[in-house]
């Protein structure tokens, strides 16, 4: 985490306190109020808010515009950017634009293949991949240079993030060293895939700590509360790269239907408590999918409230 930026998220992580991020999904319409509303629900309980970039390849309001809205509300956005839809010209142009609005966090992603989305017949781009996007941001920030070599004065001050999925099996070791590759490319923090398999997460973190990777990159553990046993089963069977052990299904299914939502919240809080003791975890990324209103409760009950105030942020 060499380069220092004005990012509040970076300051909190650097201070040694556990960071909390969450995310909002933009609407499939031009209704900006949706983002404002979702951001308001969670604003006092998180340090920064991810805005997804056409997630699952479904067309939504653009991440950059939503991030600007969030920034204008006085909150701290994390601009998610996928390389699926834009080449290096468009990506670098958007990074400059984001920086001009004082956006200081980015999450560099490759993105889901368009096969899953609402425009599966489209052409994709994939000019860069997530690691190369991080390299580009780092070059722009640290050298004031575009990939094409052009040098400029006012640099984008980005705290560079990426995603990791320790569960996209079978090889945990490979996933850990790939995080190392991202760190080498300039990534300073990562948010993980939703964690349900605690053993595998611990195995991943042990490899990361042993290889010194957690010195270079802050790991924010991904937490997604289950709404009910149906969601648990869906994530187990249908979502690629998701690892939901049978015990979770059993536990969610073991309580009456009207109590399942509460059980899901309890489970999320227990996961946070357990992960707090895992070396190398520097915070939490709480992804409450279409359930943003539960984020405050989870943050509070997990002992992560109030959020620290940082000077100048």
């Amino acid at each position: 985490m060499s380069a220092t930026t004005p990012s509040k998220l970076q300051k909190i992580i650097a201070s040694g306190q556990l960071a909390v991020t969450s995310e909002v999904g933009p609407p499939r319409s031009a209704d900006g109020a949706v983002i404002d509303h979702k951001a308001k629900l969670i604003k006092d309980y998180v340090d920064a808010i991810n805005v997804t970039d056409n997630q699952t390849s479904v067309v939504r309001m653009c991440s950059l515009a939503c991030c600007i809205r969030i920034k204008l509300m006085g909150l701290e956005p994390i601009l998610q950017m996928v390389t699926r839809d834009r080449n290096r010209i468009a990506l670098q142009s958007d990074i400059l634009g984001a920086a001009s609005f004082g956006i200081n966090n980015m999450l560099c992603l490759t993105g889901d293949h368009q096969h899953f989305g609402d425009h599966s017949s489209c052409a994709n781009v994939f000019d860069l991949d997530s690691t190369q996007l991080a390299m580009a941001v780092k070059m722009m920030r640290d050298e004031g240079k575009l990939l094409g070599g052009f040098e400029f004065q006012v640099r984008p001050e980005m705290f560079i993030g990426a995603a990791v999925n320790p569960f996209a099996g079978p090889n945990v070791f490979m996933r850990a060293i790939r995080m190392g590759k991202k760190a080498a490319a300039g990534v300073q923090f990562v948010q993980t895939q939703c964690i349900y398999n605690m053993d595998k997460m611990k195995e991943f973190m042990k490899i990361a700590v042993d290889r010194g990777l957690t010195e270079k990159v802050a790991v924010l553990a991904g937490i997604t509360p289950m709404k009910n046993v149906g969601m648990a089963k869906y994530m187990q069977k249908r979502v690629p790269g998701m690892d939901v052990p049978d015990e979770i299904i059993k536990r969610m299914g073991g309580v009456p239907k009207e109590k399942q939502a509460e059980e899901g919240i309890n489970l999320a809080i227990e996961q946070i408590e357990e992960l707090k003791t895992v070396p190398g975890i520097r915070g939490f990324h709480i992804m409450a999918i279409e359930w943003e209103e539960k984020v405050p409760q989870i943050v509070e009950r997990a002992g992560l409230y109030p959020r620290p105030q940082m000077d100048g942020a």
């Binding site: 096969h115 690691t131 996209a168």
Partner: peptide, 29 residues
Amino acid sequence: CSKRMLNGPCGGSDKGKCEINPDIPCAWE
């Protein structure tokens, strides 16, 4: 690789298979 990644594998590959089709092996695996 379905995303022609030069620094793979992506987070969507599952049990060594591509996220878009379980019949396609993940190139990066």
